[in-house]
Measured scan of single mutants.
Amino acid sequence: VGDQVLEIVPSNEEQIKNLLQLEAQEHLQLDFWKSPTTPGETAHVRVPFVNVQAVKVFLESQGIAYSIMIED
């Protein structure tokens, strides 16, 4: 199991704000291929294997929908 690319769908401005804060966490080494800008629009982010669980827990705790787009 390696890195994953998640497709994330924020449903409101609050969730977009939370994702932008997540993007700013440099220690997570997230690679946003497509940043969140509009509710209902997908964002794509590559998550290093060591941080996959932490990111998924965060998304679930914020009620942000996501799916695994690419499993490496």
Results as ranks from 00 to 15, higher is better:
Val1Arg: 14
Val1Glu: 12
Val1Gln: 14
Gly2Gln: 13
Gly2Pro: 14
Gly2Asp: 10
Gly2Asn: 09
Asp3Arg: 05
Gln4Phe: 12
Gln4Cys: 08
Val5Ala: 04
Val5His: 09
Leu6Ser: 00
Leu6Val: 03
Val9Pro: 01
Pro10Ala: 08
Pro10Tyr: 03
Ser11Gly: 07
Ser11Val: 12
Asn12His: 03
Asn12Lys: 03
Asn12Arg: 03
Glu13Phe: 11
Glu14Met: 09
Glu14Ile: 08
Gln15Asp: 08
Gln15Trp: 01
Lys17Pro: 01
Lys17Gln: 13
Asn18Pro: 02
Asn18Ser: 13
Leu19Tyr: 01
Gln21His: 13
Gln21Leu: 13
Gln21Glu: 15
Leu22Thr: 02
Leu22Ser: 02
Glu23Phe: 10
Gln25Pro: 02
Gln25Leu: 11
Gln25Glu: 10
Glu26His: 10
Glu26Pro: 12
Glu26Gly: 09
Glu26Ser: 14
His27Leu: 05
Leu28Cys: 05
Leu28Val: 04
Leu30Lys: 01
Leu30Gln: 01
Asp31Gly: 05
Asp31Trp: 07
Phe32Gly: 02
Phe32Asp: 02
Trp33Arg: 07
Ser35Cys: 08
Ser35Ala: 13
Pro36Ser: 06
Pro36Asp: 02
Thr37Phe: 05
Thr37Lys: 05
Thr38Ala: 12
Thr38Lys: 12
Pro39Val: 12
Pro39Asp: 03
Gly40Val: 01
Gly40Ser: 03
Gly40Gln: 04
Gly40His: 08
Glu41Tyr: 05
Glu41Pro: 03
Glu41Ser: 08
Ala43Val: 14
His44Trp: 12
Val45Asp: 00
Arg46Val: 07
Pro48Ala: 05
Pro48Phe: 03
Pro48Leu: 04
Pro48Cys: 03
Pro48Trp: 03
Val50His: 13
Val50Met: 11
Val50Glu: 13
Val52Phe: 13
Val52Glu: 03
Val52Ala: 07
Val52Leu: 15
Val52Ser: 06
Val52His: 04
Gln53Phe: 08
Gln53Lys: 07
Gln53Thr: 12
Val55Pro: 00
Val55Leu: 11
Val55His: 00
Val57Leu: 15
Val57Glu: 15
Val57Arg: 11
Phe58Ser: 02
Phe58Leu: 07
Phe58Lys: 02
Leu59Ala: 00
Leu59Gly: 00
Leu59Pro: 00
Glu60Ala: 07
Glu60Leu: 05
Glu60His: 08
Ser61Val: 11
Ser61Asn: 11
Gln62Arg: 15
Gln62Lys: 15
Gln62Asp: 02
Gln62Trp: 13
Gly63Tyr: 04
Gly63Ala: 05
Gly63Asn: 10
Gly63Gln: 07
Ile64Ala: 00
Tyr66Val: 03
Tyr66Ile: 01
Tyr66Trp: 08
Ser67Trp: 09
Ser67Ile: 10
Ser67Tyr: 08
Ile68His: 05
Ile68Val: 14
Ile68Ser: 05
Met69Arg: 06
Met69Ala: 06
Ile70His: 11
Ile70Ala: 11
Glu71Lys: 09
Glu71Ile: 13
Glu71Arg: 05
Asp72Trp: 15
Asp72Thr: 12
